[in-house]
Computed example of a mutant assay.
Amino acid sequence: MERVRLRPLVVAAAERLAAVGVASPLSDAEQLAAHVLGVDRMRLALHPLVEPAEAARFDDLVAARAARIPLQHLTGTAAMGEIDLAVGPGVFIPRPETELLFAWALARLEALPHDHEPVVVDLCTGSGALALAIAHARPDARVHAVELDPAALAWARRNADARIADGDTPITLHADDVTDPTLLAELSGRVDVVVSNPPYIPESAVLDPEVADHDPHRALFGGSDGLDVIRVMVPTIARLLRPGGATAIEHDDSNGGGVAALLAAAGLVDIVEHPDLAGKPRFVVAATPPAAR
């Protein structure tokens, strides 16, 4: 059988995805094509023709995406920083918006003295995205990641093992509850940076099918106002941070002021609310007061 022109297949797939409400139809179609061919999306133009079996595989994936199965479940990966993570059923899919929080964490670590070994904690690590991306970018850091859900923790362990195989510094995974007031007691007052992308969506929120039907409920919802987990977690963050340490917490776009108020009530200072690339409130940062001289 003759090979098939790829670009018309991608354009038709994008139209099919747009018709069912997929938010980024052309991007998704191109990423699925790149996945089938085993190439980077930006190199698709170098592959103008595909084998009939590849075209059939692409059509199957597009049909699954049109059924609103998440793109990342179809490709098996999601990106954070410079690394790719394995994801699938049972774990929250890292979102591009969290890259901004990751960039903030790296900038905060860069400001530390160069002879200081940073200590980082990632609460509600899920797939391990933030913890492993930080460990990759800062191999000098000691990174701890906390996750309660057994399925998510299995994905985090898989990703952590893969990063070790690629030469990254190991992280320490903790099967624990971020709402436990004694969490990581041995690190109290010693942590430079705490990051968290916790469950923060209000229970009444209406979500896209990719999220509502495929991300774990436990990783999404934070009670009626979205703050149930954050509210209990903030005092622990304040306890973990060393003087001058800092935290960044991702939140629902309705809750920036609420998270800021919780951080202030816990005695943190230098509180700043950060928007995402769409201008929506996305994460709040704060610091513990520096040590008295």
Rank of each mutant, 00 (worst) to 15 (best):
V39M: 04
V39D: 02
V39L: 03
D40P: 02
R41L: 13
M42P: 08
M42W: 09
M42C: 09
R43Q: 10
R43F: 08
L44A: 04
L44K: 03
A45M: 13
A45R: 14
A45F: 13
L46V: 10
L46H: 11
L46Y: 13
L46Q: 11
L46D: 14
L46K: 13
H47S: 10
H47G: 11
H47F: 15
H47E: 14
P48K: 08
P48Q: 08
P48G: 10
P48M: 12
L49I: 09
L49G: 07
L49Y: 14
L49M: 11
L49E: 15
V50A: 06
V50C: 05
V50D: 02
E51D: 14
E51K: 12
E51W: 14
E51R: 15
P52W: 09
P52V: 06
P52M: 02
P52N: 06
P52T: 07
P52K: 11
A53I: 09
A53S: 15
A53C: 08
A53K: 12
E54M: 05
E54T: 01
A55I: 01
A55G: 06
A55R: 05
A55E: 07
A56I: 08
R57F: 04
R57G: 13
F58C: 06
F58W: 11
F58R: 09
F58M: 02
F58V: 01
D59N: 07
D59G: 14
D59S: 15
D59H: 13
D60P: 05
D60R: 13
D60T: 14
L61Y: 02
L61V: 02
V62C: 02
V62M: 00
V62E: 01
V62Y: 05
A63H: 01
A63C: 08
A63S: 09
A63K: 04
A63F: 01
A63N: 01
A64D: 11
A64M: 12
A64P: 00
A64W: 10
A64N: 07
R65I: 00
R65C: 04
R65N: 03
R65L: 03
R65Y: 00
R65M: 02
A66I: 06
A66N: 05
A66R: 04
A66K: 06
A66M: 06
A67G: 10
A67P: 05
A67D: 10
A67T: 07
R68F: 00
R68K: 15
I69Y: 05
I69S: 03
I69P: 05
I69K: 06
I69V: 15
I69G: 09
I69N: 06
P70M: 12
P70L: 14
P70R: 13
P70K: 13
L71F: 03
L71P: 01
L71N: 00
Q72G: 02
Q72I: 01
Q72P: 03
H73G: 03
H73C: 02
H73Q: 02
H73V: 03
L74N: 00
L74H: 06
L74T: 00
L74I: 05
